[in-house]
Simulated assay, not measured.
Amino acid sequence: MPDFLKTSDGHYIAYEKTDGHGALADAPTLIWCGGLKSDMEGGKATHLHTWAQARGRAFIRFDYFGHGQSSGDFIDGTMTRWAADIGRVRDRLTTGPVILIGSSMGGWAALLTAIANTPRTAGLVLINPAPDFTEKLTVAGWSEAQIKALENDGVVYEPSGYDEPYAYSKALIEDGRARQILDMPIPVTCPVRILQGYEDTVVPWTHSKRLIDMLTSKDVTYTLVAGGDHSLSRESDLRLIETAIESLSV
């Protein structure tokens, strides 16, 4: 069963946390930052939690506002809110350095969190990261009818791989437009490991590759995974993620 972190506006964030122990008890806490409409019970999140616990690494996975077992309606969420949720988890559940592991939308949220508080971020592992996806991937592919629907109805619905469709609210699109980071230097100085599926049809590798030019960090690696899709959840993919985390833990 998860624990719950109450926020200042009366909402709560569901999370599961295990503390570090043994030789790695003081290593940076690993925080899983999931993707859009995913939750902390997803395959990569639970696999990495079990993997970290077996090695004595502190690990936290949680549900954003409007996701999973946390409170709030998904349609009211924004990138600002979801990035702030990562900050709340970091600031209230940890005291030392952290490594943020961001998947898809969570990669963007993790980057925004690292920009806001660079000293606490010891490293970033970004899996098929989708910075600026609302404007550069979603709205960029909309028809004129969808753009009009956003203006008239305040929301556009699109199919998702979940029980409910994606609901792109006007607030999410406008907030995402204001929080874009790919068109300027990204002031993140910690080591960054990017894993990108070559066959990803949700976030094309040509999109995430732009991070290489924009990140100011001097320690950035970009791994293009042959045959990898958007989930990157094959056994070989999971090994790559584990290796990326370990490369930041020396």
Rank of each mutant, 00 (worst) to 15 (best):
R90H: 05
R90A: 15
D91H: 12
G96M: 06
G96P: 13
I99L: 09
I99C: 03
L100Y: 10
L100P: 02
I101W: 12
I101T: 10
M105I: 00
M105N: 00
M105W: 01
G106D: 05
G107A: 13
W108R: 02
A109N: 12
A109D: 09
A110L: 08
L112S: 07
T113K: 13
A114K: 08
I115M: 15
I115C: 09
I115H: 10
A116R: 14
P119K: 15
P119M: 15
R120P: 01
R120W: 07
A122V: 09
G123H: 15
L124E: 13
V125F: 07
L126I: 06
L126H: 06
I127S: 09
N128A: 14
N128Q: 14
A130C: 10
D132I: 01
D132A: 08
F133P: 10
T134D: 04
E135Y: 00
E135V: 00
K136G: 01
L137V: 04
L137W: 03
L137G: 03
L137Q: 04
L137C: 01
T138F: 06
V139I: 05
A140I: 03
A140H: 02
G141A: 04
G141Y: 03
W142E: 06
E144S: 07
E144R: 14
A145H: 10
A145W: 01
Q146W: 05
Q146P: 00
Q146D: 11
I147F: 00
I147P: 00
K148I: 08
K148A: 08
K148G: 07
A149I: 03
L150F: 06
E151S: 02
D153C: 03
D153M: 08
G154M: 11
G154Y: 06
V155D: 07
